[in-house]
């Protein structure tokens, strides 16, 4: 478990009295749930620690960037990704913990794809880690569907008027990964260098690859 022992600031004179610990309601609620579940033998603290560590250190947008860069450089992999994204992504070692299916959305010169979850915040965790705060905010969840072009403009992405925008609403069973268009002038780059051009937002569709996000 984390050491979430409260460390209050010492006062200016360094006196060490009256340093109460406090748990917020949320901290105490989580402790309470842990207590109940441990007493019933339903959680293993080691497994909980391992999950937290994986999400803090190993699972994040670099996984998705690897998928995108491979799709850009390996046409067979790109085909597989189009046909069966779940299996293609799993072949790189990124598998969803919730048994969800993945679908890859390829941006083209004609169509830009944008992902949202209007229901709650379903998100392709295995390839993008945890969602950014704006993805979970009610404003994005409602406006992405109603006014995607306006939302994209707020992200600094202005698309030609003739370019179609498709908005995809994620569910618990189906998550989306946007495969952005490969930036021009990157023909000579290796897969690893290409992955460095792919931001988290580009794989949600709120940015384009190779541009500052």
């Amino acid at each position: 478990m984390h050491d979430d022992h409260d460390h209050h600031h010492h006062d200016h004179h360094g006196h060490d009295h009256h340093h109460d610990n406090r748990y917020s309601d949320m901290q105490a609620r989580v402790r309470a749930l842990e207590t109940v579940l441990s007493e019933k033998g339903l959680i293993d603290p080691g497994a909980i620690d391992a999950i937290v560590e994986a999400y803090e250190t190993k699972i994040g947008p670099r996984n998705g960037a690897h998928v995108v860069a491979k799709a850009w450089t390996d046409p067979d992999f790109a085909d597989w990704l189009k046909r069966d994204a779940t299996a293609a992504i799993a072949s790189l070692g990124y598998t969803g913990r919730q048994g969800e299916h993945m679908r890859a959305l390829f941006n083209t010169p004609e169509t830009h794809n944008l992902v949202v979850c209007t229901l709650c915040s379903c998100y392709p965790w295995s390839v993008l880690g945890l969602p950014p705060v704006w993805y979970k905010a009610p404003a994005y969840r409602s406006r992405a569907v109603i006014d995607p072009r306006g939302v994209l403009a707020e992200f600094g992405v202005t698309l030609p008027e003739e370019k179609k925008i498709r908005v995809w609403d994620s569910t618990a069973e189906l998550r989306y990964l946007v495969i952005p268009e490969r930036p021009e002038g990157t023909e000579g780059l290796a897969e690893e260098e290409l992955a460095g051009l792919v931001s988290r937002d580009a794989m949600i569709g709120s940015a384009i690859a190779g541009a500052a996000s």
Binding site: D4, M26, Q27, V30, L33, L37, I51, V52, E56, Q98
Partner: peptide
Amino acid sequence: MFPEPWAAEAFAMTVHLHENGL
């Protein structure tokens, strides 16, 4: 990532309980 440690623990507990079929 996680705003506070309790959020990480709540997240991990949920993932763990789901994996155990609850």
